[in-house]
């Protein structure tokens, strides 16, 4: 099963099992979603529950907040993180604050899904990796499913959560094949996970950079360096303890994050490791991030801007 099919399976299961769940966004109905995640669901559940909306990000996120307040469990699909900026007020000033500012009177059980990341030659305005920005905001949860199992399990977990949950699906992952236990329900959304065991170095990553990092770890193994790969999975609230356990074992850390380096989520992970795991470190924490430029279109330029397997291998060797 592919990552995309796993999301669809999650959507279908949610729509079947909970009458409060409905999906809305741009092109989610007849078209089946810009990334084909909801294909076939309109036919199964009808236009009220799989709802094509007018093209306005601030309104489908804002109306999603309203519908959640009104007793529903809306899933809002924002086509990509790039366009989610048109809804940012609804996220930062509303979804994230209403529980707190109302003194705990209001709950917003809203799930917002969007594609993120570069690598498909779509230039800067289609290639941002802003999940780290979102992770800056208290009051929301930020998930970055990087496996087929998480693609479904995290969506189901988001729908059980009483708070607004933002799910960032890296666009390069949609066709990825992987294992999925059909009966697996909601995934844990509180912990990071070790995806590969190793004793020599800890590679911390999330989302679309996980496959690249695992590949780099395989190459490193052939060079007799055993890398432990930790998938952060949940950027907010962040599970730092899994990182620290690994660092205590390997004493070396490289963080792979497709976002821009300055002020990146990699910087946050690095800071927390220094604060709480300084004594375990034998080398400075290293970061591999995207070049700090708007993502270019041409293939070789885009490759030059993005973190690559070779760079991960080289960086680890240089530690």
């Amino acid at each position: 099963m592919t990552y995309r099919e796993a999301i669809r399976a999650g959507l279908r299961e949610a729509l079947r099992s909970d009458p409060r769940v409905f999906l809305m966004g741009e092109d989610v109905g007849r078209y089946g979603g810009a990334y084909a995640c909801s294909r076939g669901l309109l036919e199964e559940f009808g236009p009220e529950r799989v709802r094509d909306t007018p093209l306005s990000e601030s309104t489908f996120v804002g109306a999603g907040i309203g519908a959640a307040l009104g007793g529903m469990r809306p899933i809002v699909e924002v086509m990509t993180v790039n366009f989610s900026l048109l809804a940012l007020d609804q996220v930062v000033n509303n979804a994230a604050t209403l529980r707190h500012m109302s003194g705990g009177q209001f709950s917003i059980p809203l799930a917002v899904r969007m594609a993120t990341g570069g690598g498909r030659q779509l230039a800067a305005q289609h290639s941002h990796s802003l999940e780290g920005w979102y992770a800056h905001i208290p009051g929301i949860k930020v998930l970055t499913p990087a496996t087929v199992a998480d693609a479904k399990g995290m969506l189901l977990a988001a729908l059980q959560d009483p708070d607004p949950v933002f799910i960032f699906e890296h666009a390069m992952l949609y066709p990825m094949e992987g294992e999925l236990d059909e009966d697996a329900g909601a995934a844990d959304i509180s912990q990071a996970r070790v995806r590969r065991q190793g004793n020599d170095v800890t590679l911390i990553t999330f989302g679309g950079s996980l496959p690249k990092t695992l590949e780099a770890a395989e190459q490193l193994a052939s060079l007799e360096i055993e890398a432990e790969v930790v998938d952060a999975r949940v950027l907010r609230p962040l599970d730092i303890s899994t990182f620290l356990t690994s660092v205590a074992k390997t004493h070396r850390v490289v963080i792979v994050d497709e976002a821009w380096r300055t002020g990146s989520f990699a910087a946050e992970i690095s800071a927390q490791i220094m604060e709480q795991g300084f004594d375990h470190l034998d080398a400075p924490v290293a970061r591999i991030c995207a070049a700090e430029v708007p993502m270019p279109y041409a293939k070789h330029l885009e490759e030059a801007a993005l973190p690559q397997v070779g760079i991960i291998v080289k960086t680890v060797q240089g530690l």
């Binding site: 999603g64 309203g66 519908a67 307040l69 009104g70 529903m72 007020d89 000033n93 509303n94 209001f106």
Partner: peptide, 25 residues
């Protein structure tokens, strides 16, 4: 009575969402 939001006009989509929820229910 929904919580007041200071950024001007941002409460308007919430009302539409509440109305849509009522309609679905």
């Amino acid at each position: 009575v929904l919580s007041v939001s200071s950024p001007v006009g941002t409460q308007i989509p919430h009302a539409v969402g509440l109305a849509i929820a009522a309609k679905i229910r």
